[in-house]
Simulated assay, not measured.
Amino acid sequence: MLGISVYFKDLDVEYLKEAAQCGAKYVFTSLHIPEEDYSDLDQKLPLFLNTCQQLGLQVVPDVSPVTFDKLKVEKGDYHRLKEMGFESLRLDYGFDNYETVKQLQKDFYLMLNASVVNKEYLDGAIEAGVDMTKIALTHNFYPRKETGLGIEAFNHKNEIFKKYGLTIQAFICGDVLKRFPLYEGLPTLECHREKHPLCAAVELIHDCGIKDVLIGDSKASIETLRSIQAYMEGKKLYIKAHLEKNYQYLYDQEIQIRKDQAEQVIRLAVQRVSDVEVYHNTRRPRGSITMQNALAGRYSGEIHLNKIDMGMDARVNVIGFIHPEYVELLNYIDNDTIIIFEKL
């Protein structure tokens, strides 16, 4: 499922409403950020919780000992957190005590810190009678550049978690408002820090088997949220592209992929057209959108997306290109993906 993050310094009720309309289900927030301004929390927190409840958004607060001080609640008074409207908790500490976890499960759905959970912990939890259906594992995000996880170690750890049937959650950056105080993005994987959020989300889903993807930063564009949700729901990929004038009819269409996948190009399942004129024969860098012309014989009219750099071919017209930020999506297109070209 899709999630966003909200921090009280940047609280935007309209963003919550729009995200819910896009299909978001989770709202992560932290209640122990040192740089956060909690001076008006008594006003903002009820507004935040009531809005999320009305919109059907599940609030996931990151809880540590500092949280109780910030909320002016007696330390360890989880019952008070429930009274305030929290239904889920992301525990940064304290879950090494299985009895505590079992007790909290009576009132909350729990997200545990995936960075410190291991096979031994999970085996112990099962033996202790912890309800594994009421637990998810949430990876950290990393505000400082160069500190995010590597994808190989991330995948290796997740393979262990998947054997227990656990939901795994990870974060990607936003593309509108980065979170204070560093404004360097909040991804789980370091390789996602500079990527477009859609590319990062699709990689997590397609290659890493992650089902819950959350925006870590204060805000992502509504267009980005819609695009991620469309891929989650029906493997629809909205790809920003430029098409030459005569081929702009391809915009905003749901285009399927041929079932027999080629190694070097992605072949679109569009009807071929005979006698396509020879036009714009030039080199074809990765991300080019091309059409076979009349010199290709019965292949005339077939449309390809280039997965690699190629030279000029008199039989191939270059009719457009994918926006550079979206070219990486070519890595994740398979025969049940649906492509929708969007105008730049």
Rank of each mutant, 00 (worst) to 15 (best):
G3S: 11
P143Q: 10
D309E: 13
K72G: 02
I338Y: 04
P65R: 08
V63C: 09
E223Y: 04
Y142I: 08
P61W: 10
G185Y: 06
D131F: 05
L243W: 12
F86Q: 10
G124R: 07
K236F: 03
E35T: 09
Q292I: 00
Q103M: 10
L104C: 11
A314C: 06
D212G: 01
K119V: 03
Q264S: 12
G150S: 08
G165F: 03
G185K: 06
S115Q: 00
E277I: 14
I222W: 04
C22G: 10
L225N: 12
V273L: 13
Q58Y: 09
Q105P: 11
L198E: 06
Y7H: 15
Q229H: 14
K259D: 14
I33G: 01
A19T: 05
D12K: 13
D207F: 05
N306I: 01
H79I: 09
L81V: 02
T290P: 00
G234E: 15
K17W: 03
T290I: 07
A128Y: 06
F321G: 06
I222D: 03
P61V: 09
V316N: 02
V318C: 14
Y299P: 07
M312A: 14
H242R: 10
A294H: 14
A296L: 04
R315Q: 12
Q21C: 06
G23P: 04
H79G: 15
G234Q: 14
E74H: 07
G209E: 09
D69I: 01
H32Y: 13
Y251D: 09
K157Y: 02
E233V: 12
I239S: 03
A201P: 00
T188I: 10
N158V: 09
L198R: 08
